[in-house]
Design a protein around this nucleic acid. Structure first.
Length: 183
DNA sequence: TGCACGATGAAC
DNA sequence: TTCATCGTGCAC
């Protein structure tokens, strides 16, 4: 198991999204190290992607998305849940991958199916926004040789307002995994 | 300064 | 299908 380096995130967003499936999210908080295996993600492809927050341009909220790769973009949604993304590609590309579901590995309480529950179980909130994912307390790790998994491609969830972008197959999950939020 | 709405989840 | 709940972005 090795921590994913900055260069991992500095690539095409769809490629990063694929490679994140099977990777492990680690968060050390109050002396507890929580771990979960990523089984479902969504790719958001930058300002031209009408489903992406960055489509509205650089604002205080989306500042991190417009920044360099390998940082966490965490925001509050519906006034009660948090969503976590990893920023991808070069500064200014404003692309990211939303983490939608985890398979619990260690110190996970509660469900992890869906972006809001994932953040709750991993103790991720707005304080983690902008956090460096190459740090020692919040990062992603992968096996040296990634296990081969079948990837299912589906339209993203909750973005029906985004016209033809809503129909793009930018949601990816590990086929048959029981922790996927919605098959 | 006000207001409509959302990359959700749970209940009904 | 409805609702909880509040920060964000944009209209005024």
């Amino acid at each position: 198991m090795h921590k994913l380096p900055r260069a991992f995130y500095d690539r095409d967003t769809v490629e990063v999204a694929h490679d994140l499936l099977g990777a492990v999210l680690v968060h050390v908080c109050d002396g507890i190290e929580r771990r979960g295996r990523i089984v479902e993600v969504e790719a958001y492809l930058g300002p031209h992607d009408l489903a992406a927050h960055s489509a509205r341009g650089l604002t205080p909220r989306t500042r991190v998305m417009f920044g360099p790769p390998g940082y966490a973009y965490v925001y509050l949604i519906y006034g009660m849940y948090h969503c976590m993304n990893v920023v991808t590609q070069a500064e200014g590309k404003a692309s990211a991958v939303l983490l939608r579901a985890l398979e619990p590995i260690a110190n996970i309480e509660g469900r992890t199916q869906g972006p809001g529950l994932l953040c709750r179980a991993m103790h991720i909130d707005r304080r983690m926004n902008g956090h460096d994912l190459t740090s020692d307390d919040f990062y992603l790790a992968a096996e040296e040789t990634q296990a081969r998994v079948s990837i299912v491609k589906r339209p993203r969830i909750g973005v029906d307002y985004a016209g033809h972008w809503a129909r793009r197959l930018l949601r990816f999950y590990i086929k048959g995994n029981r922790y996927v939020s919605r098959a």
